Lab assay of single mutants.
Amino acid sequence: TGYYDVLGVKPDASDNELKKAYRKMALKFHPDKNPDGAEQFKQISQAYEVLSDEKKRQIYDQ
């Protein structure tokens, strides 16, 4: 599964769309709200870390 799929956004998503999707998913799977969501929360955080950084995103998109 790709990072875009993890966040539920298209590859041409804007920074604002990425942030909005990340916040929505992070709230849904945060371990405090969803004890079984810890692994998914890590994936969401990693996806956002890469896609929100312009240089990392360019490398990922290659």
Rank of each mutant, 00 (worst) to 15 (best):
residue 42 K to G: 05
residue 29 F to V: 03
residue 28 K to Q: 10
residue 30 H to K: 05
residue 61 D to H: 05
residue 14 S to A: 05
residue 46 Q to P: 02
residue 54 E to P: 15
residue 20 K to S: 13
residue 6 V to T: 08
residue 61 D to L: 03
residue 19 K to G: 06
residue 10 K to M: 09
residue 23 R to G: 12
residue 47 A to Y: 01
residue 17 E to W: 05
residue 20 K to M: 13
residue 49 E to N: 10
residue 16 N to V: 11
residue 36 D to E: 12
residue 3 Y to N: 05
residue 52 S to N: 04
residue 23 R to P: 04
residue 43 Q to Y: 13
residue 17 E to N: 03
residue 10 K to D: 07
residue 4 Y to A: 00
residue 22 Y to C: 07
residue 56 K to D: 05
residue 25 M to Q: 09
residue 57 R to Y: 04
residue 17 E to H: 03
residue 51 L to V: 04
residue 15 D to W: 15
residue 15 D to H: 15
residue 48 Y to M: 03
residue 34 N to S: 07
residue 34 N to D: 10
residue 5 D to N: 10
residue 25 M to E: 06
residue 46 Q to L: 14
residue 61 D to G: 07
residue 32 D to F: 13
residue 13 A to I: 06
residue 36 D to A: 11
residue 24 K to Y: 10
residue 59 I to N: 09
residue 37 G to T: 11
residue 61 D to R: 05
residue 31 P to V: 05
residue 45 S to I: 14
residue 45 S to T: 15
residue 1 T to Y: 15
residue 49 E to D: 09
residue 4 Y to C: 06
residue 18 L to F: 00
residue 19 K to L: 14
residue 11 P to M: 07
residue 2 G to Y: 15
residue 49 E to A: 13
residue 31 P to G: 07
residue 29 F to Y: 13
residue 47 A to D: 03
residue 58 Q to I: 09
residue 10 K to P: 11
residue 27 L to V: 10
residue 8 G to V: 02
residue 41 F to L: 07
residue 55 K to C: 12
residue 46 Q to D: 10
residue 49 E to L: 10
residue 46 Q to T: 11
residue 61 D to C: 03
residue 16 N to F: 13
residue 51 L to N: 00
residue 10 K to V: 03
residue 55 K to P: 03
residue 9 V to G: 08
residue 42 K to N: 08
residue 42 K to P: 07
residue 16 N to I: 14
residue 16 N to T: 12
residue 16 N to L: 14
residue 20 K to E: 15
residue 60 Y to D: 00
residue 52 S to P: 00
residue 45 S to M: 13
residue 24 K to F: 10
residue 48 Y to K: 00
residue 45 S to F: 11
residue 1 T to H: 13
residue 42 K to Q: 06
residue 8 G to I: 01
residue 24 K to T: 09
residue 18 L to R: 01
residue 28 K to P: 01
residue 7 L to W: 01
residue 10 K to I: 03
residue 45 S to N: 12
residue 37 G to Q: 08
residue 13 A to S: 04
residue 35 P to L: 05
residue 61 D to P: 05
residue 61 D to Q: 01
residue 53 D to P: 00
residue 15 D to R: 13
residue 15 D to V: 14
residue 55 K to G: 09
residue 27 L to I: 11
residue 44 I to D: 01
residue 47 A to Q: 03
residue 1 T to S: 08
residue 41 F to G: 00
residue 44 I to G: 00
residue 12 D to S: 11
residue 54 E to M: 13
residue 19 K to M: 12
residue 53 D to T: 07
residue 45 S to C: 14
residue 17 E to D: 11
residue 41 F to V: 02
residue 36 D to H: 10
residue 36 D to C: 11
residue 51 L to R: 00
residue 51 L to F: 02
residue 50 V to L: 07
residue 1 T to M: 12
residue 24 K to S: 09
residue 56 K to T: 09
residue 39 E to N: 07
residue 50 V to H: 06
residue 3 Y to G: 01
residue 52 S to E: 05
residue 59 I to Y: 11
residue 11 P to C: 12
residue 30 H to G: 07
residue 11 P to K: 10
residue 6 V to P: 03
residue 55 K to H: 12
residue 31 P to F: 08
residue 30 H to S: 09
residue 12 D to K: 01
residue 8 G to D: 05
residue 57 R to L: 03
residue 19 K to A: 12
residue 60 Y to K: 06
residue 40 Q to C: 15
residue 51 L to G: 02
residue 22 Y to R: 03
residue 59 I to L: 12
residue 54 E to C: 13
residue 15 D to S: 14
residue 59 I to M: 13
residue 9 V to H: 02
residue 25 M to I: 06
residue 16 N to P: 06
residue 4 Y to M: 00
residue 21 A to F: 04
residue 49 E to P: 01
residue 51 L to Y: 01
residue 49 E to V: 07
residue 12 D to F: 08
residue 51 L to T: 03
residue 30 H to R: 07
residue 14 S to F: 05
residue 21 A to W: 03
residue 24 K to W: 09
residue 26 A to F: 15
residue 29 F to K: 00
residue 60 Y to G: 02
residue 60 Y to I: 04
residue 23 R to V: 14
residue 56 K to C: 12
residue 58 Q to H: 11
residue 56 K to G: 04
residue 8 G to R: 04
residue 36 D to S: 11
residue 13 A to K: 00
residue 10 K to G: 10
residue 18 L to Y: 03
residue 43 Q to C: 14
residue 18 L to I: 15
residue 45 S to P: 01
residue 13 A to H: 03
residue 36 D to I: 07
residue 49 E to G: 07
residue 28 K to V: 08
residue 23 R to W: 13
residue 19 K to S: 08
residue 32 D to K: 11
residue 48 Y to A: 00
residue 13 A to R: 00
residue 40 Q to A: 11
residue 11 P to W: 11
residue 52 S to Y: 04
residue 41 F to A: 00
residue 38 A to C: 11
